[in-house]
Simulated scan of single mutants.
Amino acid sequence: MKVLVIVTAFPRSERDVISPWLWITLRELSRHGVDIEVLSAAFKGLGDTEMWGLKVRRWRYGPPFLEILSYDVAIPEQLKRNPLYYAVVPLFLSGGFLKALSLAKSQSYDLLHVNWPIPLSLLSLPFGDTPKIMTFHHSGLTLAEKFPFLRKIYRGILEGADAVTVNSGFTRRKLLRIFPGLRRVETIPWPPGWETESLPEVEPEEKRILFVGRLVEVKGVEYLLRAHKLLRKKFPDVKLAVVGDGPLRPRLEKLTDELGLRDSVVFTGWKTGEDIVSEYLRASLVVVPSIVDEKGLTESLGVVAIEAMAFGRPVVASDVGGLPDVVTPDAGILVPQKDPEALASAIEKILSDRKLARELSEGARRRFREHFSKEAVAARYHKLYQEVVGEKA
Rank of each mutant, 00 (worst) to 15 (best):
R184H: 13
L210E: 01
A227V: 02
L158K: 12
S168K: 12
V164C: 09
E159Q: 14
F170K: 09
K229H: 13
R172P: 00
D245T: 15
R232E: 00
W190Y: 15
K233W: 02
G169Y: 07
H228S: 08
N167G: 09
L230T: 01
K239R: 15
H228R: 06
E201M: 08
R183C: 01
E201D: 10
V202N: 10
G246V: 09
E222V: 11
L240H: 03
G193A: 06
L224E: 02
P180T: 05
L182A: 07
W190D: 00
W190H: 13
E206N: 12
G220F: 03
R249C: 03
G246T: 06
V185A: 05
N167M: 07
G160M: 04
L176M: 15
G213I: 10
E222L: 06
E205P: 01
I178F: 11
R183Y: 00
F170D: 03
T165P: 01
G193I: 05
P204A: 13
F211C: 03
G193S: 07
V242P: 02
I209G: 05
V238A: 15
G244L: 06
K219A: 03
P180N: 07
S168C: 05
P180R: 13
G213M: 04
L176C: 05
L175P: 00
D245V: 07
E186Q: 09
L158T: 04
L215R: 12
V216W: 05
T187Y: 10
F179V: 08
V216M: 08
V202C: 09
V166G: 08
R173K: 12
G181P: 00
T196F: 13
V238G: 04
A227Q: 07
S198K: 14
R214I: 00
L231M: 11
L230V: 02
G220W: 03
L158A: 09
K234H: 12
T196G: 08
L240G: 08
G244R: 12
D245R: 14
V238L: 03
E186M: 04
T171E: 08
G213Q: 02
F179G: 06
P189S: 14
L199M: 07
R251N: 10
V216L: 04
R251I: 00
V216C: 06
P192I: 01
V212W: 03
F211G: 04
G244F: 12
W190Q: 06
